[in-house]
Simulated scan of single mutants.
Amino acid sequence: MSKSTQENLLYLSSTFSKLLKRRFGKGPETCTMMSKGNRLYIYIRNFITPAEEVLLKNNQLILVHNFRSAVINAVINEFKPEVSKVFGGKIDHFFHDWNYDSNTGIILLENVPSTDEVKMEEDFEKTLFNLIDFVGTRYHKRPVGLKVVKFTQNICAIEAREVLLQLESLAYEQGNLDLLLHQAREIKSGYLKNKSLFEDLFNRVIEDIFIVWDYEKNRNYLIFVFFK
């Protein structure tokens, strides 16, 4: 990564943290920006507010999700012009996922169309895709296609296409987001239960696993964050 790109990412990280603090009343402990092609990944640690802690203790996860989504949407709408100014191009989509137990989150911003693909050692990629198939098909529909879109010492992101069951597509069309949220939690829980299998393959300790969903385009991103 060039120095100028690193400086841009540090600037965006500082800007985003300030926006979060203004909207939430507190900023994250850390906010790490990573970029690849037309995608920007934001990894956040220690973001839960006191009000959210109370809701979580009372198992009000839907309320927490709705509150956080509303605020994050407002923050991203303010943040998108800064990203466009730094990297050029328009931000078309953004997605987010949160692990409340570990107090972490990931936000993915992208513009389309995208041709990003990481060149990975063929045998390793095949083994990775086979493992995703082995674990994932226990919990969700087998995707039509998989593609690694980012792989560094810090993160691995895999795009999966055509991942929704007919019932899930119908739930999205009818606006039944509670059902989709519950299903997404169950699927991610399944991957977390099998984290050691992926750690053995990557030969890395996995700090977090996220799955961000694009229901409109029937795809998701499986994201592994590694301990540095």
Rank of each mutant, 00 (worst) to 15 (best):
Y41I: 00
W98C: 04
S84V: 06
K57S: 09
A51W: 14
E29P: 05
V54D: 13
V86T: 11
K85V: 09
I48P: 11
Q60R: 11
A74G: 10
I48C: 11
F47T: 10
I72L: 09
Y43L: 03
F94R: 05
F79L: 06
Y43R: 01
L56F: 03
A70I: 14
E78R: 15
T104L: 03
I106P: 00
M33W: 03
S84L: 07
N38F: 01
M34W: 04
S35M: 10
E78G: 12
V75Q: 04
Y41V: 01
F79A: 13
S84Q: 00
K26E: 09
V54H: 03
A51G: 07
I107D: 02
K85F: 13
T104Q: 01
H93F: 13
F67Y: 09
I42Q: 10
I91L: 09
N46M: 13
L63Q: 08
C31I: 06
G27M: 12
S35N: 06
S84D: 03
W98E: 00
S102I: 10
N99F: 13
K57G: 10
L55C: 06
I91S: 04
K57I: 00
F94M: 09
I91Q: 06
F95H: 14
K36S: 07
E52N: 03
F94K: 00
L40W: 02
I106E: 05
L56N: 08
N58W: 04
N38V: 12
Q60L: 15
S102Y: 06
T32D: 10
V71E: 02
E82D: 11
L61G: 02
H96I: 04
E53H: 13
L108V: 03
N103T: 02
E82K: 10
L40I: 15
L61T: 10
S35E: 04
V64R: 00
E78V: 07
L61K: 13
T30G: 02
I72H: 02
N38H: 14
F79K: 04
A70G: 13
I72E: 10
L40H: 01
P81C: 01
K90H: 08
P28Y: 00
P81Q: 04
A51K: 08
R39T: 08
H65G: 04
Y43F: 08
E78C: 03
T30C: 01
R45Y: 07
P50N: 07
H65S: 15
N58E: 11
L55I: 12
F47R: 08
N38I: 07
F87Q: 07
E78I: 03
E29V: 15
H65A: 15
K90D: 09
D101P: 11
K90V: 15
I106M: 05
V75M: 13
P50H: 07
I72S: 09
I44D: 01
L108F: 00
S84M: 15
L108G: 00
P81F: 14
D92I: 08
I76H: 05
D97Q: 12
G88R: 07
L40M: 05
G37I: 08
N99D: 14
F94Y: 11
A74R: 13
I91A: 02
D101S: 04
G89W: 02
N59G: 02
G89T: 14
H93G: 06
